[in-house]
Amino acid sequence: MSKRLGKGLDALIPSLSVNDDDKIVEISLKELRPNPYQPRKNFDHESIQELAESISQHGVIQPIIVRKVLKGYEIIAGERRYRASEVAGKKTIPTVIRSFTDQQVMEIALIENVQRENLNALEVATAYQALMEEFKMTQEELATKVGKSRSHIANFLRLLSLPDAVKEHVSRGTLSMGHARSLVSVKKEEVIIALANKAIEQEWNVRQLEEAVQNLDKKKEDSTKSKTKKTDPYLVDVEETLRDRFQTTVKIKHSNKDKGKIELNYYSKQDLERLLEMLNQM
């Protein structure tokens, strides 16, 4: 198993690593089928083509991991190598056969992709939800499984409440995870969509979108007049640091004589408890 996967997969399923004692067999590509729990829906064509060229010259260096199913074999790890072998015109591929439960297969597919950062935010969120529903996991149990914090899990799951049009933008990458997270607190679907479209059209960064969300309930004499607010670069940097640390909207309000206040937004009782827990640990 590639070291790029870190310790997550090895800790979850130690037998996933291929060693010298393993029996490597050549299996026909026709007998293989992709992992049905694979959260990644889009594979980069260019990277598959590059891998196919390498396989044509050097063969498949690292065997893929499969499990025996009713009809043929199911890929546990190595779907890119399988797809690239098809492109390269290979008839067989070196494999190691393992025995895994459905839950293990699902976890492996998720962790492998998340650690390789091949999934977009919506694919990760959908995979997290599927794991929790399929195997009756709590957020904390899932966080332990995938090596993430509970707040990380909660933030991704909140994305699933967004309108489909906005989720599509996140999937395509026209809106970032930070943009999407800023919109979760808005209640009206039409307002969410309007803000998302405006953020894309005007190329707002996350902070600008957050300010637009915060100003929704404020009355303005001229709604079409844009106001340029002078900000301290240092405070902007601190806000970004705190936003990443607490995984929520953060606002620093600076007054005269170096005084001010820091506001942390929460969107549910559970979210508030998460923030209080983090603050108590500091």
Rank of each mutant, 00 (worst) to 15 (best):
Q49H: 04
E221G: 11
T101G: 00
E134A: 14
S15F: 07
P94K: 12
E117N: 14
K7N: 13
N205W: 02
N35P: 13
T138Y: 09
P94A: 14
K198H: 03
P34D: 00
V124D: 00
T144G: 05
P36K: 05
N256V: 11
S85Q: 07
L183Q: 08
R181L: 14
I61G: 01
I192M: 10
S56E: 12
E221Y: 10
Q49M: 08
V114E: 06
D20K: 12
G260A: 04
T138E: 08
E123W: 01
K225Y: 04
R98F: 03
E277M: 05
L29M: 01
D164T: 15
Y234L: 14
D244V: 01
I200N: 01
A180Y: 06
E190N: 15
M106D: 10
T138P: 01
M106L: 10
L51G: 01
Q281D: 14
E203C: 09
Q281I: 10
L119I: 06
P63S: 14
V250I: 13
M137I: 04
K188P: 01
R80I: 03
K90W: 07
I76R: 06
E277Y: 06
N19E: 10
F246C: 02
G178I: 08
I76C: 06
Q62P: 05
S185M: 07
N113G: 10
A180G: 13
V105A: 09
V170C: 09
R181Q: 15
E46P: 00
R181Y: 05
E211M: 07
P34H: 00
L175S: 07
R158L: 14
G6T: 07
V96W: 06
I27V: 08
I200W: 04
Q115C: 11
L110Q: 05
S185P: 01
E140V: 09
R40Y: 00
K30M: 03
R172I: 11
D164M: 15
S171P: 11
I108C: 09
L9E: 00
F43S: 10
R83H: 13
Q139V: 03
A180T: 06
K261C: 07
D102R: 15
R243E: 09
V124H: 00
A212Q: 03
L183P: 00
I13G: 00
K167E: 06
E112T: 12
M137Q: 08
Y266D: 04
V66W: 00
N113F: 03
S15Y: 08
L12Q: 04
E210W: 01
A84N: 09
H179Y: 08
K167A: 11
V186F: 06
S15Q: 10
L119K: 04
V96N: 11
R81V: 09
G178Y: 12
K41P: 09
L157G: 11
K261I: 07
